[in-house]
């Protein structure tokens, strides 16, 4: 884990409220796993005070060496508004990589990757990692949903990876007019993956976990919770475990990627 002021390589608006922020970091990120995150201190000001957690969207490589990473973020509040205004050459303080990423089972037969809105950020990293590891594209199907077409990100790049990509929007502005989870459910009637990887808003995570449980398919979900430190000290990021209502796990250390079967979500 590294804590450092790092240089902003780029901060590009990618439509609507979404930005891609490239950060220069020559050390510490070479072994980053998809699903891991960083805590970013956006300014030296006390308002906003706390760091903000962002999943790592992709690694920036040059001549085979990792020289930084990119985060994909949506402007949702004060912190991300300030972040969207930062420019190339500026600096932010980064703590990371943090947490546990997705666990790819050995010899898996097939997987569904399910993304909702900004949840595509770590799943893009996961999908590219799988392809890079030589996984046959026939083993992967990806489902990407959002409220509207502006909320669907990285579509062209993901399509170029070569596996089937199912697109849906709540308003029908792109792909099928349906919730991403409905598309997943339909697809499950004729295909059965042995692993589902998912990241998206809480109601979607709940729905995906429910589908996986019903169909008895392993499922890993990447969760987002409010947290102060990102390193196991504040204990603010509790998530409830299934078997007993009074036991908690912590998103920062035990997650943010969890086996959905152990969570009460």
């Amino acid at each position: 884990m590294l804590q450092e002021k790092v240089e902003i390589l780029w901060n590009k608006e990618v439509g609507g409220l979404y930005y891609r922020l490239g950060l220069k970091c020559d050390e510490g990120f070479a072994d980053t796993k998809p699903g891991q995150f960083v805590m970013v201190r956006i300014s030296d000001s006390y308002n906003p005070l706390l760091r903000r957690p962002f999943s790592i969207h992709r690694l920036i490589e040059e001549n085979g060496n990792v020289r930084g990473f990119e985060i994909l973020f949506k402007v949702v509040g004060k912190g991300t508004t300030i972040l969207s205004g930062l420019r190339e050459g500026g600096f932010v303080d980064v703590l990371g990589p943090l947490g546990r990423g997705f666990v790819i089972p050995e010899n898996f037969q097939s997987t569904f990757i399910v993304a909702g809105g900004i949840g595509v950020a770590p799943l893009f990293f996961l999908a590219s990692d799988l392809m890079r590891a030589g996984v046959d594209s026939s083993k992967i199907q990806m489902f990407i949903g959002g409220r509207s077409k502006e909320d669907l990100l990285c579509i062209d790049e993901i399509k170029a990876m070569g596996f089937p990509v199912h697109i849906s929007t709540d308003d029908g502005s792109l792909g099928e007019k349906a919730l991403v989870t409905e598309i997943v459910k339909n697809k499950l009637t004729n295909t059965r993956p042995d692993m589902i990887f998912a990241c998206g808003p809480s109601p979607m995570m709940k729905a995906v976990a429910g589908i996986a449980e019903k169909e008895n398919i392993s499922c890993q979900v990447s969760l987002e919770t409010m947290m102060a430190c990102g390193m196991g000290a504040c204990l603010g990021c509790a998530v409830e475990k299934k078997e007993s209502s009074d036991k908690y796990l912590h998103t920062c250390l035990d997650g943010p990627v969890f086996d959905a079967a152990i969570l009460k979500i």
Binding site: P48, L49, L50, T225, M226, M227, A228, C234, L235, G236, C237, A238, V239, E240, D246, K247, Y248
Partner: peptide
């Protein structure tokens, strides 16, 4: 002690 249910922190 398991502590309180989430959400537990807010800025």
């Amino acid at each position: 002690s398991p502590g309180n249910p989430p959400p537990r922190v807010v800025e």
